[in-house]
Design a protein around this nucleic acid. Structure first.
Lengths: 194, 194, 194, 194
DNA sequence: GATGAATGAGAATTCATTCAT
DNA sequence: GATGAATGAATTCTCATTCAT
């Protein structure tokens, strides 16, 4: 690995951390440069602009995570297994790189809008899984967007609680509980009690 | 109504809108002043600083909403009814003032940290309801933070989908469905698979 | 005394105090208005501008003090008596209204330049006394500007020490000592040692 | 000398000049930047703030001058010689860099308050010399603050007269006269009248 | 590749002053 | 006479970006 690519990686790592800690707008190029230990201008050898850095950080990782989700989902036989695989993917991602997870899932400052409609996002993957399961009758038929929102909500809000220390810092031990909650939410008739 | 208080209300309304549309950091005092149709400096007769404006917008409304939630919850007899009442509160709030809802629940960005621990937030209200229900055996006993996260996740992510047009723009028609999902998620092993 | 002239006097008093405490540039019209307990704009009923207020405060009082000095000087028979009378005038002024004294003698923010050359200032009065005394052979003949500087220096720096608490807060008890110092400084041949 | 340090020196020089000519509060960062021929923001690469610039200009030079005074005083055998050496130091400083002299001795405006009590100022040096001389019986015993005020008053007011063109622009030729005046002022009742 | 001074366009904020009420 | 909202220019400072070295 060359000196240059080492610097680039450090920029990415420190930028990610600062973006998550303080927000993107609140983090200056100088903040990043100082964290890395380089001069302000040096950052522009590696990224055309601050926006380009943010975009790169988001786009590449977001799509990669979507692909990982898709791979996990594809390898599972039925809806419940697919759901469990995907939730497990979320949990492992959170535990492995919480900073990146938070950047992608919470800090996305309008970056989502810049992603073309043709690219699959994690939301698309989950939605596709659920939609197919409805078609196959595996889960209650309802608006796929609604079902997707519930799964995402359960996962992301659990992650949020973990971030704020209201829960254990690791998500993987909670995987089965999360899957259970999501599965139950998806089950049931459209409107039921008891 | 005096000229001054009209201006103040306009500032609040336009600021809220711009904060939600572009983010707080991305909205300049000039943006707000121009939207209202006054000079930059005039804003400072009504709010001591941009921060004070953000804080005012957040604090007053956040607490008021929490109190509303608490009132709704208190008037309901059991956990399911309390949950339904609170979810209904969320839905009505979203439908009545989506801009304010989004500002409070999505844009906050650190304002929460400035609120003293002694003040009850919506999270506290929901959590207290769930914790009490667990004590009374109305719902499965588990980490209250986890249960709270699920309810919040289901509600907020549904709202998010509505914001992005993936769902109908009104939440109230979905209230019973949302309550159902939350209730099932909390239900524990009852509807669990296997 | 009418309501209006009471307000005007309060403005003068509070402005003087603030100018001395914080400096003229550092004191805003609003600071003054708040200290008086009136609205910002009300000040302009009494003074055309902040500059006009500063100018009025300075000019009127400065000239009045110069006239007082002149009166004191004229009533004394010889140089030493005139000096004693004038130093006594400085001391009494300082003790009676230290705020005004400080404003006139220390805070003069370029106000001196705005006073026409035809008006007599305290500096002129002292200088005239010393020049005449040299002519009459009462004190050593030397550059009158130099002699004036010494007398002023001794008086003002003593006042400064009093302001900063390095000396008793009242100057009058020190009058004879100050006169003695000034008189000795003026005496002596142009260059002498003991 | 690098480009950067050249700019920094120019900023210091021009700022000093403007501060003395117009006052600190009346001099904007833009004024300084324009005088130097750089953009406003460029100044902040060299000084963290306008305040920091003022503080740097004051503190470093004030202390340096105090040290010079102390060196001069220490090298002289008795009070009169010490006084002559210190007054000579004042005169040479004034003649060598009248702008800096005026900034330090006349424009300070609250900078003195920011200097810790542990640092020796010119006032302390003079006062210590006079206090020691009183102990040794070289000059009349009186409140050291009073004696210090007189010496300072004579020197500074002479400098003021020079600044305003009422005296020759150079102070050094007047040194012996100034020393004489100060010495006589301190002399006590010896030359006193009657 | 790296440095860091410089730019220029804003950012938030202050403030003397005006004016409708 | 008084109020206080509004103005508009100015102030300090920040920051993404450029560029000579």
């Amino acid at each position: 690995m060359t000196r240059g690519s080492q610097t680039r990686e450090q920029i990415e790592a420190k930028a990610l951390q600062l973006f998550v800690e303080q927000g993107v707008a609140e983090t200056s190029v100088r903040d990043i440069a100082q964290a890395v230990g380089i001069a302000d201008g040096a950052l522009y050898r590696h990224f055309a602009s601050k926006d380009a850095l943010v975009g790169h950080l988001f786009k590449a990782n977001y799509i990669r995570f979507a692909e990982e989700l898709d791979r996990l989902q594809a390898a599972a036989p039925d809806c419940h297994a697919k759901l469990a695989a995907m939730v497990g993917g979320f949990c492992r991602f959170f535990d492995a790189d919480p900073v990146l997870f938070r950047f992608l899932l919470f800090v996305q400052h309008g970056q989502l809008a810049k992603i073309g409609a043709e690219v699959s996002t994690p939301v698309d993957i989950v939605r596709n899984v659920l939609e197919a399961a409805m078609t196959r009758g595996e889960i209650t038929r309802r608006d796929p967007a609604l079902a997707t929102a519930w799964v995402f909500g359960i996962v992301l809000q659990t992650a949020t609680a973990a971030v704020y220390g209201r829960l254990s810092p690791k998500l993987t031990p909670l995987r089965d509980e999360i899957v259970g909650a999501a599965w139950r939410a998806l089950a049931g008739t459209a409107i039921d009690r008891a």
